[in-house]
């Protein structure tokens, strides 16, 4: 099935099996490797990306549902490498990642959380993201989201 999608603002046409998970379309066909496979059952969030602005777990999302839609992955979260998204800035400032494998998913979830709740409390963060990290970066993820909220709000005011 031929699918037309816009991936990180780039119009893309790909011929894939309609039920292939969107994750594999993004990774293997569009060659964007930042979105990760973790569980294959939408349990861990490593494959999180946006479809028309909605946060979805792409390992369990059939590619055909993305036809005609706008996809944003970690590679498209910021404008470019010189202008990082506040979440990425905060992630570097707080030194969040260890192995780093789950972090794309966490950053996508964090950026979405801040869109919906620009001033989250620690409890909002703890209850708002259910992704899995095995290295145990949780304390720094919470700290970085609080910082990202501040950076984002300061940026708007500035």
């Amino acid at each position: 099935m031929q699918l037309s999608l816009t991936i990180n603002n780039k119009p893309t046409v790909l011929d894939v099996e309609p039920d292939m998970p969107l994750l594999w379309l993004i990774r293997d066909e569009a060659k964007l490797k930042g979105t990760k496979f973790g569980c294959g059952k939408a349990l861990c969030g490593a494959c999180s990306l946006y479809v028309d602005g909605d946060l979805i777990r792409s390992c369990s999302y059939p590619a055909q549902l993305a036809n005609g839609k706008k996809i944003t992955t970690i590679e498209g979260l910021s404008e470019d490498e010189a202008h990082l998204h506040p979440v990425q800035q905060a992630w570097l400032e707080v030194q969040v990642p260890q192995c780093g494998y789950c972090q794309s998913g966490f950053m996508m979830a964090a950026a979405k959380l801040l869109e919906e709740n620009p001033n989250p409390t620690t409890d909002d963060i703890k209850n708002g993201i259910s992704n899995i990290c095995r290295c145990g970066t949780h304390p720094r993820i919470i700290k970085a989201i609080l910082l990202a909220a501040k950076l984002k709000n300061d940026g708007k005011r500035g």
């Binding site: 490797k33 969040v96 780093g100």
Partner: peptide
Amino acid sequence: RIDLPDKVLGKPIYGI
């Protein structure tokens, strides 16, 4: 950490 910029940008660095 020198490995974090790549990890924050989603660069293709893992076995997968």
